[in-house]
Write a protein that binds this DNA or RNA. Sequence first.
RNA 1: GUGGCCAUAGCUCAACAGUAGAGCACUAGCCUGUGGCGCUAGUGACACGGGGGCAGCACCCGUUGGCCACCCCA
Length: 502
Amino acid sequence: MTPMTPKKKKIPPPKEKLSAIIAPKKTKGPAPTPQTPRGMKDLLPTEEKFWRQANDSAISIARAYGYEWIETPIIEETQLFVRGVGKQTDIVEKEMFSFVDQGGEALSLRPEATAAVSRAYTSHGMVNLPQPVKLWYSGPMFRHERPQAGRLRQFHQFGFEILGEGKPIADAELVLMAVRYFGDLGVPVTVELNSIGDHFCREPYKEKLIAYYRGVRSKLCENCKTRLSRSPMRLLDCKEPECVTLRPGAPQIVDHLCEDCRNHFMKVVDYLDEADAPYSLNPHLVRGLDYYTRTVFEVLPKTEEETARAHSALASGGRYDGLVELLGGRPTPAAGFSIGLERVINRIKELGLPVAGAWQPAVYFAQLGEPAKRKALVLFEILRKAGIPVTVSFTKDALKQQMEIANRLGVRYTVILGQKEILDGTVILRDMEAGIQEIVDEKKLAADLRKKLGLDTQKLSLPTPVVSAAPPPKPFEEEEPEEAKVTEEVPEVPNVKPEEGV
RNA sequence: GUGGCCAUAGCUCAACAGUAGAGCACUAGCCUGUGGCGCUAGUGACACGGGGGCAGCACCCGUUGGCCACCCCA
């Protein structure tokens, strides 16, 4: 007996296929440039500020509400999702990137994170932590769908989960967090809210629903005919005109909630009213994942014209009281929601909302000549250590080029180090706005720059002065029409037109 | 997954069945240690594969990718 051998049946790895891919047959012509896989894209430097904005705002919400960071693997056992998300859901049935690895394990790229977080809750004995356990995560998710704007195969979700808490105020907290997140960003949204009961009241309700639709079965769309036996609740969601017309006669889940579920839902609604949250009840809101119980909600963009696109949710979530237990843990009430970061960013761009800038250096370090390069290696580091947002291009030789870079970066000051300065133990400090230069002792440079940049008036040094998540309408950079108060003019600079004063 | 539209330089766009052009960007020079403006020059593309045709980027088919609707959701 080898105890190492797992009991699971192993499927032999598809060796031939793999080797065929790694060593493909020769083709004629030049090798084609590889593309990103369908529905997956590179995120480029120009996107940084939007991602920072969307992500940092969410982090500040997470902190404020007491959620802690967690990160789970991008790949999990396929079974986790089959059991957690549900065998009959669209996600599991047709949208998962699943594969068998070299060791014969059936694995999948995660299509969502709630199942994994619930697994982690049990795996790491978080039941023994003070309850509830409140967690946030952020990362890529994968669904094999037909791509479209706002719908990718690799997309990013930021999510929050409360595990070990069944009180309705937890549901309300989550909805409010969502509302406030979008409020902070300046994205107008509405929340659609519903309760889909728990398994005590849902099963009897489903029977009634099926009974109703059986009576009118012939009028249903093809899709719904199949849904009828597999997931009848989804009939309420169908957009086919025939099905829509049948909907008003259908029994509504809210009318069939058990007493506990009804009370729970009423309290959630009550809390939301108290907080003046912009929600509306949508008795037809049903989630595509099996684990939801009781409260479910979607956050939709509020747009001028109610176009079809308005129906793509920016965030969604709800309560999932059965999930932890379903995955082999103790019965644990839980709830959560997740935000679709790409969709949020699209919206921010469409609305032209202000975002905090990406990291901006305030000082550029220019060096001229080989000795200066060497010395720059040391002097630059001193500035960096001193907490000055400084940047440099050691590979560039011509001063002109470096000045161009400094200009493009929009830096306040450029430090210039050349032969002369090395001999004197000094450095030229150029004010890029005023076009004025002064000579500074290299030993005093760091302190001088900190003073000029006003760094000493703030806290202590921030090694990476990243823009904080200060969310609300914070326009762009404040401009400082600082008049020239420095002494030495440098005449040879062709400062042609004084009209460009500020 | 179904149906439709689309695909020319890094970006935004032209052109013609006879062998691709602009603006911006990029690189260099005018300016031998100093940015923004200007001038000059240069780099750089017909997504991939096949078909008919003297000839194709243009027409046809396939592949890949994007977008739109459906589906679904984030």
